[in-house]
Amino acid sequence: MTYEFDFSVLLPFWREFATGVWLTLQLSALATVLGFVLGTLCAIGRADGSPAVKWAVATYVEVIRNTPLLVQIFLVYFGIATLGVHVSANMAAVIALVVNVGAYTCEIVRAGLESVHKAQLEAADCLGLSRVQTYWHVVLRPAVERVYPALTSQYVLLMLASSITSQISAEELTAVANRIQSDTFRSFETYIVVGVLYLLLSFVVRAAFWGFGMVVFVRRRKLGTAL
């Protein structure tokens, strides 16, 4: 059994691939930023909120972590449509990814918050800092720095998982590939190219996180030691 590889038929589609890569990056970046904000607020709520807030966050986290992403995406896409609000497939994809990664971020950041010693809070309190100031200046940065590797992995996973949003025809890389392979009947070649592109994207995302960490965590950059 022989198979003649022919990648040349894909060459005319390079613009489509590029658009897909770009949209995957945009979806992932937006979902990462919003998911981080949502997850961090949830982590603070779970650590420090009223019993009702703690319960609400715990329920959200458990529901999301114990249901498939694809089902969540369909629920968001069709759910919003049922409410009579029109959102594009891309927008629905971002919302679903944010809701999903927010739950995982919450658990990771919560571990970081718990690693900050109570004595640090007491010291900040005794200096007269308000609760918000204490969280912002004393708790969050060390907490996020400690769990930054775990967060990086989670957001690389998010970028890869964004391929599932092709199911609601968000026009990211996998959706583009689906279309190209049905036009060319060159499925194997198409998905090899897509696989390589995702691999490269992962490297790019990891590098971006590493660079961002170097800028934000100054102490780590200067001393190179763990907190």
């Binding site: 004595a119 010291a123 940065r141 060390p142 907190l227």
Partner: peptide, 9 residues
């Protein structure tokens, strides 16, 4: 405090 409690970052 006994344990200094400086902010490490």
């Amino acid at each position: 405090f006994q344990s200094y409690n400086l902010f490490p970052h």
